[in-house]
Amino acid sequence: MNIIVCLKQILDPEVPARDFRIDAEKKEAVRGTANLVTNIFCENALETALQLREKTGGRITALVFAPESGEDALRKALAMKADEAVLVINDGHPHPDPLAVAHVLAAAISKIGVFDLVMVGRESGDWGVGQTGGLLAEELGVPCISFVDNLENGTDGLIVTRQTDNGWEKARSTTPLVVTITNNEYNVPRIPKTRDIMMSARQPITRLTLDEIGVDAASIRAGGNYYEIVDISIPVKEVTCEFVTGDSLDERVDQFAKRIIEVTQAL
């Protein structure tokens, strides 16, 4: 089985809220002293792929579309034991829109060649767009199943388990296929062995430019024309706890209950 796992490199989502700043010009978060990390759902995807490979054999190619910094994500993927690493260098817009990303990934995948399975994270911890998998499937012209947390080889095709709002579903699918991966208790990304981290530094990474994969590089560099972030801001947080008020306990609990309902309804 030839598996391609797409990984996104994002700003560490654990930057404490009080350290979080926005760059109004670039319309994105300021990096500050924070690190770039691999998006957790993408790591879940890689972990799922590694486990699938243990069962079915095959090769795993890690694919990243990012600036040079994306090399770190690929090194980590190699350390986790992906077989190959491909970096499509983003020398344009800092956060191209999801269709532009899907378009680039699809072109890169075509360039890589045969594949049976493409795995992506269900969404990213920065923009949380949640569209890359679906759009990529359309770009590639293959089916897609979302929120998958397990794959097995069945008698005729893959058996894919995915989470739903109130349970799970199992699907049978032919390949090629795109799946978006969500987390469960079994696909917690493994911690690479230090030995493998050291080795990964010496493994080759294939670098591709936008021009080399045959896309409309100018449009991608401009960020695409699917959608545009027109504004981003930090909501004024109610930093202090609002203690419910009222003359009687009854009133205060009533207030408390109302606030609970208010919040739960908006979920």
Partner: peptide
């Protein structure tokens, strides 16, 4: 966006 740390308007 950003895990609830910011709000964006998308056109």
């Amino acid at each position: 966006v950003y895990g609830g740390k910011a709000v964006a308007t998308i056109e």
